[in-house]
Nucleic acid binder design. Structure first.
Lengths: 268, 268
DNA sequence: CAGTGGTCTAGACCACACT
DNA sequence: GTGTGGTCTAGACCACTGC
């Protein structure tokens, strides 16, 4: 293959001539580079579960052959997926589907760090489940999750502590469909990150999230659970997490004690 | 040039044979890809002020000729500098040095957004300088800034408001040397982002920052300035900003009202 | 039109991991 | 050694900008 500028793709049509724009809807040049189309195809395989978290995916040359493009084009597609934390490259070994089951992820999603002390010399958080109920979604939960009011949802409440001192009170709302069968026992007996359990038991991988932070005063119930005085300032962290195609899959609201810890964020 | 695997670079030596490791200090394979060396050279030109914020830098081919490498290698170096927000590529025009003087940067560093309402329909913040004093650095300010206690520093205090309602009270600590000559008048008469003024007047470009967030209760003075009750929960945001070679250049502490706004953060 | 960055390809070789 | 990702090169063509 020496000349073909744009080898036809079986599933995604090459950029079409934009002259007879059928849709009257704005301009839409509709040009998409080949490597973006490849990225889309790989993404689809990830969503479809062809490769599961932790799996080794085919080599760049294999994928290039499958998609009928050069290895460099596949490489660029994988590069972007790797910087989006969907894939992990390991030189000499291959490319793997990213997973929450391992590594230093307790710093990518849980940003509460001790004020003093070096890195995670605080050890992992101790977790205590308060309850896990199945109920019908109130409107303010249904909307962000893309559900309708009254749809079945799960509500998990728990406390995280460090060194015996409670630090976080969390409410976790999950859509009932994808998480059918989640029980308090499964949560309590699990020892790893909760997002790893979501991957292995429900095939749901959280890819990104948006958090809204506020300072609030502790109410009576919260104060008791976190062992502080009522009215004590707390950091409210509301998180909406998304899985592969920007589908929201978890709404979480945490109340963080920040007397001896802080929420760390990097701006760039 | 067909064969040279590692064309010698004038300024940065090519990877040396690691067999006679002179330094007994650990392993240190000391292998650095060419494009990383190029990245370093471009970075050095940025630090030296050869190209200033907003400037057009030489084309990829010009840089390739200067550094005696291929255009693709320069491209990879520029790619990384662009994803680090140090350079901005504009197809058909060229590559420019990133600047705070323009665009949508009020969202990269000021993350306080209205709870309701669409995007920045709140308009720009109204700024009121409380004072701008030159004094000697206390220890807790000197340390993060890489100074010694007693070194000259500038302290700027100001209030930011949206629609007439005060929302943020800020203390800004700057090293006296690089910011010699900064006056309250310059600050008050300026209309753009403060970081843009730092670039144009002092040649200091902020590249990245680390923030530590806590929930705190308003003290009497703060409460009055922000028009809230004493004890009201506030979001404390402590920011350390860095310029090119990871040199800290600003310590900022803000107290944010979060009753009708929130601090937004994206996790990925 | 010329000049810039953006995409795509093809081939060579290096660094790393496993066997 | 073999196979993987990582680097580097060279050349072609596309897309956008501005003269």
């Amino acid at each position: 293959m020496l000349a073909p500028q744009r080898p036809p793709m079986a599933t995604t049509p090459p950029p079409q001539d934009p002259s007879p724009d059928a849709s009257a809807d704005s301009v839409a040049p509709a040009f998409s580079p080949l490597y973006q189309q490849i990225k889309g195809l790989i993404l689809r395989s990830l969503q479809a579960g062809e490769w599961k978290p932790g799996d080794l995916i085919p080599s760049e040359f294999e994928l290039a052959a499958r998609f009928k493009v050069s290895q460099g084009t596949v490489r660029k597609a994988i590069d972007e997926l790797a910087t989006d934390n969907l894939l992990v490259r390991r030189q000499g070994k291959g490319t793997f589907v990213a997973t929450h089951a391992e590594q230093h992820i307790q710093f990518r999603f849980l940003r509460l760090l001790p004020d003093q002390g070096t890195l995670d010399d605080q050890g992992p958080a101790e977790r205590r489940i308060i309850d896990c109920r199945r109920l019908r979604a109130p409107a303010e939960v249904a909307r962000p999750l893309g559900l309708r009011s009254g749809d079945p949802v799960l509500l998990v409440r728990r406390v995280l502590a460090f060194g015996g001192t409670p630090a976080i009170l969390e409410e976790i709302w999950l859509p009932g469909g994808p998480f059918k069968g989640l029980t308090v026992d499964a949560l309590a007996s699990d020892t790893g990150p909760m997002y790893a359990l979501f991957e292995s038991q429900f095939g749901v991988r959280m890819v990104r999230a948006v958090e809204k932070l506020k300072a609030v005063a502790a109410d009576a119930d919260t104060a008791e659970r976190l062992n502080i005085a009522e009215g004590h300032p707390l950091l409210s962290v509301e998180r909406l997490s998304y899985t592969y195609n920007d589908t929201p899959m978890e709404l979480r609201r945490g109340l963080y004690r920040t007397d001896t810890r802080h929420y760390r964020n990097e701006l760039s």
